[in-house]
Amino acid sequence: MQDNTGFSPQESLRLIDSMIKEARNKYSENGHLYLFWGWVILFCSAANFVLAYFNLYDKPYQVWWLTAAAGVYQFFYILKHKTNRATKSYTDLLYGYIWLTFGVLLIIAIIITSIKGNWDFLYPQILALYGMPVFLSGIILRFIPLKAGGIVCWLLAIVASLISAQYHLLLLVIAIIVAWLIPGYMLQAKYKKENK
């Protein structure tokens, strides 16, 4: 492109339009971390359920310590890939804040539950809360599988409050597959296709 000043208003508008389209809603990462966390949480939920249900270990919730290791991995992954990001879009910013809000609400739910001592309602709350970032991500990215995933989470939250707490982890496993991994892989495939 040259420093050309003799162009028509029509050409101006076309140029503006094409540049705005270039910058719009580009996923600036390939979803690696998102899918990685999906598998970590899926593993922890399933392992916790199996250990508790079959009485294999008296402190089954300790499998969740794996998330700390995953956090360390995420830290180094971000550190390594930080320099590769050429832009920061408002979508990225909004997306980050939505997940931050979810994280804060999750911690508050855990604090309230531990103070009240009634852990039976923790998972219905987590499922209801988790529907929020998933649904909103679907809105931002205009991606129906994510919107549907969010709604499934909310339905599972209601189902969870109706059934015995020992099966809650199974609902979490379903939520992760339907609202996390399936849309995640679909989105990754879309990303790869668009960036070919």
Binding site: M1, D3, T5, E22, A23, T87, K88, S89
Partner: peptide, 30 residues
Amino acid sequence: LHSQLRLAVMSLLIGLKEAEFTYIKEKTKS
């Protein structure tokens, strides 16, 4: 603004929070 390259740069930046020089160079093919 009524210069092809400057307008292209501004049109890119209007939709982004910030962008690196290399990204702008690539997108504007300059």
